[in-house]
Amino acid sequence: MKSKQKNLFLFLTFLWIFSCKESSSSSNDSLLALIPLLGASANATLCPKSLTLPSDTFLANTVVSASANVSGFSDPSKAINGVCGAGELAGSLDVYALERTGAGATIILSWGGRTVKNVTDSIDFIVYDNSFRISGDSNTYAMDPSVIQVSLDGSKYCGFNPSYTAGNINLIANWQKFGGLRPVYYNMTTNPLSNEDLFISTGGNFLLGGGDGFDLDDLDPNDPNDVNCDTTTANDIKATGFKFIKITSASNVTNHADGTNKFPWPPGSYNGSDIDGVVARDLQ
């Protein structure tokens, strides 16, 4: 094969293995063998190297609700044990995989009773998934879009009214206000960053540590998918902060701009969003 054809073959093989989420040791060995060939520097066995989370990084640390059962990726503790990003060209394996539909398509996390503050004129929290770039176009990614909602009391959830523009399903610009869009550069072992560093913008809605950032001031009480949210509830969260975050695979959420259909799901992925962690800017 020519070099370009060989690289394409390796990439497609990698994408197929990763998307299927096979649990066998042979599949994982194949995946780890392909990562360096694709230019990634991740080593899934190194992160996290400690059971103790860094005290100066405000990671969600409690699983409130999780019921997905994706073979090989069904341990919900992977969503709170630290962030293990694999960079621009690969996705982390240290994740909890949601299902595409049903109750297993959602996970709820918290900070153990603490409240995520609304910091003035700033991104307030970051959701980490395992998206990675799939072509020379910096805006084209293998994504796991997720709908993000937050709550102060655990019953009234408000979101950001995400929207999808029909077209190239892998074009990041076609997805607005979702999690699971951008690669994760933050890795607690190989690329440790401070909590402050994680919120540094590098332009184009990208952050130094990667992931997708959300500002509580952007909460939209008119989001038709929200549960018991109204203007008063949204304003309370903006003023007080939130304690709970709900992350749902976009394939399980109605795209009201397209009638009653669910948001589309990128082809080749047999499960829903893959959760690596959530970091808050500040807690109280």
Rank of each mutant, 00 (worst) to 15 (best):
M1T: 10
M1E: 13
K2V: 04
S3C: 10
K4H: 13
K4V: 13
Q5P: 01
L10R: 12
L10A: 06
F11V: 09
T13M: 13
F18Q: 14
S19H: 09
C20H: 11
S23W: 07
S25Q: 14
S26H: 14
S27Y: 10
N28R: 15
L31R: 14
P36W: 12
L37E: 15
G39P: 05
A44F: 14
A44E: 13
C47N: 04
L53F: 08
L53M: 08
L53S: 04
S55H: 09
T62W: 06
T62N: 12
T62G: 05
V63C: 10
S74H: 05
S74G: 05
S74V: 06
D75R: 03
S77K: 12
K78G: 01
V83N: 02
V83K: 02
A86I: 09
G91Q: 02
G91N: 08
G91S: 11
S92M: 06
D94E: 15
Y96C: 08
L98H: 04
E99H: 11
E99Q: 15
I107E: 07
L109N: 03
S110N: 15
G112Q: 08
V119R: 03
T120K: 14
T120D: 12
D121H: 08
D124E: 08
I126Y: 07
I126E: 00
N130V: 07
S131Y: 00
R133A: 10
R133D: 07
D137E: 12
D137A: 14
S138F: 05
A142E: 11
M143G: 01
D144I: 01
P145R: 03
S146M: 10
V147E: 00
V147F: 00
G154S: 07
K156G: 01
K156Q: 11
G159E: 00
P162R: 00
S163K: 14
S163G: 11
S163T: 15
Y164L: 12
L171S: 09
I172Y: 01
G179M: 03
G180D: 04
V184Y: 01
Y186E: 01
Y186V: 02
N187T: 06
N187Q: 05
L193N: 00
D197V: 05
I200F: 10
L207D: 01
L207K: 03
L208S: 09
D212I: 12
F214G: 02
D220W: 02
D220P: 03
P221H: 03
D223I: 02
P224A: 10
D226N: 12
D230R: 07
T231Y: 00
T231W: 00
I237A: 00
I237F: 00
T240Q: 08
T240P: 01
G241M: 03
G241K: 00
F244P: 07
I245H: 05
T248I: 04
T248C: 04
S249W: 04
S249D: 08
A250F: 05
A250D: 04
S251V: 09
N252P: 06
H256A: 08
D258P: 04
T260R: 07
N261L: 12
F263E: 09
P266D: 03
S269T: 10
S273L: 04
G277P: 02
V278K: 00
V278D: 00
A280D: 02
R281F: 08
